[in-house]
Write a protein that binds this DNA or RNA. Structure first.
Lengths: 212, 212
DNA sequence: GTCTATAACCTGATAGAC
DNA sequence: GTCTATCAGGTTATAGAC
């Protein structure tokens, strides 16, 4: 993508980035993802980043701006993964479902608060609408429709199928806090459960696809 | 339920309640449920209720107090329904699943923002932990375990089964805003979709319960 | 670039008139 | 009971020194 001779310049321009700017973004990502926009104060971010409040505004001009950056980051990661899997013309239907589930769970195990962040932040409304289009306009959907015509799977509303795959996979993360209370599931037990579901969900989906 | 002669007294005691107090609660319910605790300002509630800010504090003393009332309202409705269904010793496993799904969807169709409210409000942490216990300690779970022993259904982690039922049912409401954008699903189409799912989810669950 | 100090604004809650 | 006015504290953002 770029010549070796350019790399030094790149490093010089963008710096190695363990400076204040990166510290602030890291702190913002952590706090916003955990608690949402309103609950996080710019002072919290500055403190978490170990820098001064004024510096945050020097780099990012406003709280809203900083939030926007984190949000795009989060949405982007998800979208990339989905798009890659869902438009691959080489893989089978079964493989796609398996990959979707596995990749979601992989990403979310590292960043379990992300779904709640995406879903519950009113500020996101503009950005998050593309998931549906990405799914419904994909090669994956073509495969589904072909299989339905061939009688290999039962008729199902595409939106419902999408809700089933995404719901079975993501819902546990969304509702995670309801089960991880003091006397509830430990962090380890939750992850174990999700690893188990990673194997089962594709099988469950297949079974569902045979129901008339 | 109550004698006609009592009705006048009731009206006198509790008032007809289209006074300020009810207006405030109604406004608070709407806004809190839609946007969450932090995003809603007491001024917003007062404005929505068409009364003055001071009156809100006169009746409810604090924002937190008012929130608590709404929350108990929301949690209460859900809990009642679940408890009733899940501990009924007369109904079959299949019937219970069907009733859980149908009742959830019924309640949520009227109040579609409720799940997001419950799930995403950090303030609720104390109250919401009982769902898991209610489920896992129920007669419903006994039936599941019996059926598993009898080989009628495949072995499944009880927590996973619960996540499947609740997830398939509730997730669409949680993620609703992602699909109901300008060029997305209309309100009517969404409700139609959920009515369809009301029929299908019990069948899907049954199919899943046969997967090894 | 980074800091301290402070301006400008927002928000929950109360005092006090009616 | 209901209102206007206002307080006390918090919060975002900026000015200005270094």
């Amino acid at each position: 993508m770029c010549h070796i001779s350019n790399e030094m310049a790149l490093v010089k321009n963008k710096k190695t980035k363990d400076g204040a700017e990166k510290k602030i973004v890291d702190a913002a990502r952590k706090l916003f993802t955990e608690k949402g926009y309103d609950a996080v104060k710019t002072r919290d971010i500055a403190k978490e980043a170990g820098i001064n409040l004024a510096l945050l505004n020097y780099y990012f001009r406003s709280k809203e701006n900083l939030f926007e950056i984190i949000m795009k980051e989060n949405m982007g990661r998800f979208m990339e993964v989905i798009t890659g899997i869902v438009n691959n013309e080489e893989t089978s239907l079964e493989k796609k479902i398996e990959m979707l589930v596995a990749n979601y769970i992989e990403i979310l195990s590292v960043n379990p608060d992300m779904p709640l962040f995406v879903i519950s932040n009113a500020k996101i409304d503009d950005h998050r609408m593309k998931l549906r289009e990405k799914f419904l306009g994909s090669y994956f959907m073509k495969q589904i429709q072909q299989a339905m015509k061939a009688g290999k799977i039962a008729d199902i509303n595409p939106a419902s199928l999408m809700l089933n795959i995404v719901g079975l996979t993501i819902f546990p993360f969304v509702a995670r806090r309801m089960f991880q209370s003091s006397n509830g599931l430990t962090h380890e037990a939750f992850n174990e459960l999700m690893q188990e579901r990673k194997k089962m969900i594709p099988k469950w989906i297949e079974a569902m696809l045979k129901v008339k």
